[in-house]
């Protein structure tokens, strides 16, 4: 019953995003299409983090590392393809998204395996700090790497290519990003309902009990951390292509915080929570950003309100709202 209701809300939220993208395109509002694309991409980064944070209880404050690795994978491959300078082993880079995405995900997956193997020895505050420390390490590494722009970052002039599509057209790029988001949602939904998902959620709620039924926590958590990083890296690669620019700021702890805000704002452990959270974030940035430079103060207040009074986030509020509505109807 609750499952059904949440399923309907998920369809509604994803459907709304698609409708906004297509509607804006039909109305000739290219900029709004790009905003919707941004929501899809940042939502995707949040869907990745949500697996670890929401379902696994792993509060990673270093997911910018994976977002940035995805971004730099796109940027570095594209820059080598553009100037014909071989990257390594005679491989000359690529401007094909179908090559860039797997590279981005594998690189981030490998990094997550290393970072996870070390940081999962800790828990609680220490886990937060260790993941943050790793992300900061990569951040400073990127800053001091002049080959790829150092502090200034790396721009590329043409968006990378996808067979049969003109990725520079906002609606076509939106289609690509929204489709990937849809796939990630289906994947994420399946994983959380699977045996693995049961094990993961049981470890979050009661690790001692999970051990007592024969489940080892560390391999399950590490696998989750790696999958989560790979999804966030895919979002990073898409984000690089959206802006046609990557910079060390993708690795910064602000970015980690923002991804976390999407998840918390939308509803921790809710499948479409990160999309709702990212949409709210972009909307506030866009609308209030015009009014005042201090729009983030309002965001802070909202976040505070959500954490204190609605721990289920936006999705939780919508669920409650629908319940109240149904009750009213039943009473009439």
């Amino acid at each position: 019953m609750t499952m059904n209701r949440e399923f309907i809300i998920n369809i509604m939220i994803f459907g709304l995003l698609i409708a906004v993208g297509i509607g804006a395109h039909l109305a000739g509002q290219g900029f709004t299409v790009t905003l919707a694309t941004k929501v899809a991409i940042l939502g995707l980064a949040g869907v990745g983090l949500n697996l670890a944070l929401g379902y696994g209880g792993l509060v990673s404050f270093g997911h910018a590392a994976f977002f940035g690795i995805g971004g730099y994978a796109a940027g570095v491959l594209a820059s080598h393809a553009a100037n014909g300078d071989p990257l390594m082993f005679g491989f000359g880079g690529s401007n094909q998204m179908l090559v860039i995405w797997p590279v981005a995900m594998l690189a981030a997956g490998f990094a997550a395996l290393m970072i996870g193997a070390l940081s999962l020895r800790t828990s609680g505050v220490y886990f937060i700090m260790v993941t943050l420390a790793f992300a900061q390490m990569i951040y400073y590494f990127a800053i001091s790497w002049p080959r790829y722009g150092g502090e200034d970052g790396l721009s590329f002039y043409v968006r990378n290519a996808f067979p049969g599509m003109n990725t520079l057209k906002p609606i076509e790029y939106f289609t690509i990003c929204a489709s990937l988001l849809g796939l990630a949602l289906v994947f994420s939904g399946l994983v959380t309902q699977s045996r693995f998902g049961l094990a993961l959620q049981s470890i979050r709620q009661n690790p001692q009990r999970a051990t007592a039924v024969g489940i080892r926590a560390t391999p399950v958590r590490l696998t989750t951390f790696v999958i989560s990083a790979m999804i966030t890296a895919l979002a990073g690669a898409l984000y690089a292509d959206l802006n046609r620019f990557v910079s060390p700021s993708m690795f910064s702890w602000h970015m980690s915080g923002e991804i976390m805000v999407f998840v918390i704002l939308g509803g921790v452990g809710r499948l479409c929570g990160p999309i709702a959270g990212a949409a709210m974030f972009i909307l506030l940035e866009h609308l209030l950003g015009k009014v005042s430079d201090h729009w983030q103060a309002l965001l802070g207040l909202m976040l505070l309100g959500i954490v204190l009074f609605a721990p289920g986030g936006l999705i939780g509020l919508i669920t409650k709202g629908l319940d109240a509505l149904r009750k009213e109807k039943a009473d009439v």
């Binding site: 994947f187 399946l190 994983v191 309902q193 699977s194 045996r195 693995f196 998902g197 049961l198 094990a199 999970a210 039924v213 024969g214 489940i215 391999p219 399950v220 696998t223």
Partner: peptide, 14 residues
């Protein structure tokens, strides 16, 4: 699932 040692199944709804 734990007793069987088969928790690494990702896509099939439990």
């Amino acid at each position: 699932a734990g007793a069987g040692g088969h928790v690494f199944r990702f896509l099939r709804p439990a």
